[in-house]
């Protein structure tokens, strides 16, 4: 175990130099690098914590927003349900009203059809009755029914009261046109002249008389002016027949048929 003082001192100096150099080139630099990395990691952790806090805040806000949206959705749903109920009631009411309107229309249409039916029935049955009567009258007495009808009409004109005749004449003269006499059959010229004369002298019609044959008319003959009417025909018979027909479709209490 030899000891060399020179070597001892040299090694002390060498070691001191080595401490200085390694402190400069190794420990100082490594410590600085590690501190820098630690700072970065700390900054990263801080940023991550901040991001985490922000994420939590965002999640909380999102949850609140979701709750608000859920509340709004429920409100909208309730409103929509209420609106749907109201709409359903409105549609139902509208439908009911429409049904009633339609029912009314149907009733009106049916009534119009009924009137048209009875008008045609009257015309056809009147004509039929006219033909039957004309044939029977011709075969039984050799007379023409048209002549008899015109004769009865002329007699009714002759038998008019003074008051009725003046009222009829006033109404007929106000129109400034000839008085129209409608008939369901052709009136011969003799009867025409007789009736025209009666209308002029007995009743007082100043504008003359015009005879027309009406194909749609029930059997008979009539003269009318502003509500006044002189007539003879089968109208009373056909109206009685109409009542009879309507009575067929009704029950014992008088319900049903064409009146419903």
């Amino acid at each position: 175990m030899e000891f060399d003082l020179f070597t001892f001192i040299a090694q002390l100096i060498n070691f001191a130099i080595l401490v200085f150099l390694l402190n400069k080139f190794l420990f100082g630099r490594v410590k600085a690098a590690m501190d820098e990395r630690e700072k970065k990691i700390a900054a990263g952790i801080e940023a991550a914590q901040k991001a985490g806090a922000e994420a939590e805040e965002s999640a909380r806000r999102a949850a609140e927003e979701l709750a608000n949206l859920e509340s709004r959705r429920q409100e909208m749903l309730d409103a929509a349900k209420k609106e749907a109920r109201d709409e359903a009631l409105r549609i139902k009411e509208a439908s009911r009203k429409e049904d009633e309107e339609q029912k009314k229309k149907w009733h009106l249409a049916f009534a119009a059809e009924q009137d048209d039916y009875f008008r045609k029935l009257k015309v056809h049955s009147g004509r039929f009755a006219w033909m039957v009567s004309e044939k029977m009258l011709r075969e039984l007495s050799g007379a023409q029914i048209g002549e008899k009808a015109a004769e009865i009409f002329a007699r009714k004109v002759e038998e008019l009261g003074e008051k009725e005749a003046s009222g009829f004449a006033a109404a007929a003269n106000r129109s400034q046109k000839p008085l129209v006499i409608l008939s369901s059959f052709p009136v011969d010229s003799g009867q025409k002249n007789r009736i025209a004369l009666l209308m002029k002298e007995k009743v007082g019609c100043k504008n003359g008389v015009e005879f027309r044959q009406d194909a749609d008319m029930e059997f008979g003959i009539e003269a009318s002016a502003e509500g006044y009417r002189i007539s003879w025909g089968g109208k009373d018979y056909t109206e009685a027949m109409q009542d009879e027909v309507l009575g067929v479709f009704k029950n014992d209490k008088g319900q049903g048929g064409y009146d419903e």
């Binding site: 175990m1 030899e2 000891f3 060399d4 003082l5 070597t7 001892f8 001192i9 090694q11 002390l12 070691f15």
Partner: peptide
């Protein structure tokens, strides 16, 4: 070398 270890110990 004892001189070295002595220097380190000192």
């Amino acid at each position: 070398s004892f001189s070295t270890t002595a220097a380190l110990a000192v």
